[in-house]
Design a protein around this nucleic acid. Structure first.
Lengths: 210, 210
DNA sequence: GTCTATACGAAGATAGAC
DNA sequence: GTCTATCTTCGTATAGAC
């Protein structure tokens, strides 16, 4: 339990994250992780007694946590800053990978595999929840009501994640640029409505809630 | 080339679409398609000489085309109607599958597999493009400028697609409800800006375009 | 800790019988 | 058209040597 685990184990997790981003959960095979990380085959069950399942789970956790921490940190600077930082993060991923890499959490969420797939899906849910919550706090700090902030935070995460998928498909940054610009307008609009205390009519009536 | 292909072949494609929605592209195995459709094993290479690759390709095409036609049809009734219809479509998919099914095009886009994966990714791009274009025309019909309409159309597709992913993860409709409501506000805001001819300052300067 | 060897199953694809 | 082998490859996992 010391910290003699350094290179090999960490490299394997990072490689698993890469594969997860580029080719989805099903593509995170032991061979793929080994060839990427250069780790020796004999190290697999030494570092990960749970085998592939454990590697995949840890990769998801690692990647989701890193992004969550990032959002939470910059959220104190306000929603606009958080949105900008979130966007910059994905643009770097997209650019550095030449549009072959996307969001690892989305990858897990859309491949509801069999057995441990349910457990992974649950973790994906928690990670998304954490991202939304950090963004929501940033929006509350900007003066929005809790309910509006929650709705808008979901909008930010959903639209950026969707844009990342579109950017991969189109192999350019246009969708993310478009979404960020519209989100900026939307945040301003919500702030305006909040300042002027105009409880505009909403389309939905808060039914269908969980 | 007649039309004696009826049950078996079509059933296989429909089953492939289901698997694609629920478990991603890699999960579209011949066994999965056969067990779902009930088709006989010997029919595979009779109906699909290209094997698995051909089945997957046709499933993507079939699903993407159906949605494109749907958007294009309702787009004539305006952007708000198109958004509502698009949302209703996904809510039905989510509800009927108990949140186990999502967008088949996203599934393909995030699993950039090796060989024919590149070809599939190209098809996914075309399908997204077609969806965005139909939504863009609806927005132009509502009085928005071409550039604003294009940006907002991308926003609609991206945010709804992202919301579908979040709905699957959370197993409820809240993300989609939130996104649709915010999109309604955004469409109204853009219409207002267009009507009042206020060329507001934009954050981006149209660089980084493809 | 890392290596090799091996077992086992899943999956794609082909050949030939019916 | 459909079925039954069969081949091959790949991926997970284990055992035992070094």
């Amino acid at each position: 339990m010391g910290r003699d685990r350094r290179d090999t184990r960490r490299d394997m997790v990072l490689s698993a994250v890469e594969v997860l981003r580029e080719r989805g959960a099903d593509a995170v095979t032991l061979d793929a992780v080994l060839s990427r990380s250069g780790a020796p085959r004999g190290s697999i069950y030494h570092h990960f007694p749970g085998g592939r399942s454990e590697i995949l789970s840890e990769a998801l956790e690692f990647a989701g946590d890193a992004i969550a921490v990032r959002i939470e940190r910059v959220a104190e600077a306000g929603a606009t800053a958080a949105l900008r930082d979130f966007s910059v993060f994905w643009k770097k991923i997209l650019h550095d990978s030449d549009y072959t890499a996307g969001c690892p959490v989305v990858s897990v969420a859309v491949s509801n595999a069999d057995e441990d797939g349910a457990q992974l899906a649950g973790r994906a849910r928690d990670i998304f929840e954490r991202w939304c919550d950090a963004m929501r706090r940033a929006l509350v700090g900007d003066g929005l009501t809790p309910r509006t902030a929650e709705r808008l935070a979901t909008m930010v995460i959903a639209s950026v994640e969707g844009a990342v998928v579109l950017c991969r498909a189109r192999r350019n940054m246009a969708p993310l640029d478009d979404v960020v610009e519209e989100l900026g307008l939307l945040i301003d609009a919500e702030k305006f409505l909040a300042r002027n205390k105009h409880p505009r009519q909403r389309a939905s009536t808060d039914k269908d809630r969980s």
